[in-house]
Design a protein around this nucleic acid. Structure first.
Length: 151
DNA sequence: GCCAACGTTGGC
DNA sequence: GCCAACGTTGGC
């Protein structure tokens, strides 16, 4: 079992949107970055995921989700009407993938980015690395525990 | 292969 | 709105 973190802008899709989705489950589509794509493909059913809100008044970790379906082709790449359409992704050899995430729970409070930065135990946390813009990233067990210990 | 131009992310 | 830090594109 592995741990991950996904970022989302709450205006576009928030932890509450996941909670309120049918079966509390949603496709994690629209990832169009190769490194993030590679991480998506490493995700396995049962893996646990920190849900992070970005580009908002208080960026931070707000909840936990679970991978309920491992990577499969992201069909939005084949849809000319989708904002995620990529003419270079061929259905016979898909370039982009998505997983299904199910809401587990919200944290009792937002663990803010500012707070994460203050923790020496999170020095190596991928999220905090300079210039990191990945929307999907791995979280090691130590970081996972350090984040949740703040709750 | 190099690199400039451009677009995007995301904190502030 | 600003800007740093990327990734991508395309000319050469």
């Amino acid at each position: 079992m592995a741990y991950w973190l996904v970022k989302s802008e709450p205006d576009a899709f928030s932890i509450d949107d996941l909670k309120n989705a049918p079966r509390r489950t949603e496709h994690w589509d629209g990832v169009r970055n190769y490194q993030a794509r590679n991480y998506l493909r490493e995700m396995a059913r049962g893996d646990e995921v920190l849900f992070y809100h970005s580009s908002c008044p208080e960026p931070g970790v707000v909840g936990i989700a679970k991978v309920v379906k491992a990577a499969y082709p992201d069909h939005t790449a084949f849809d000319p009407d989708s904002k995620y359409f990529d003419p270079k992704s061929d259905p016979t050899e898909p370039r982009w993938f998505m997983v299904d995430l199910r809401f587990t729970r919200k944290l009792k409070r937002t663990i803010s980015l500012a707070e994460l930065k203050e923790d020496p135990a999170l020095e190596d946390f991928v999220l905090l690395r300079k210039g990191n813009r990945l929307s999907v990233m791995p979280v090691d067990e130590r970081a996972w525990k350090a984040v949740l210990a703040k709750e």
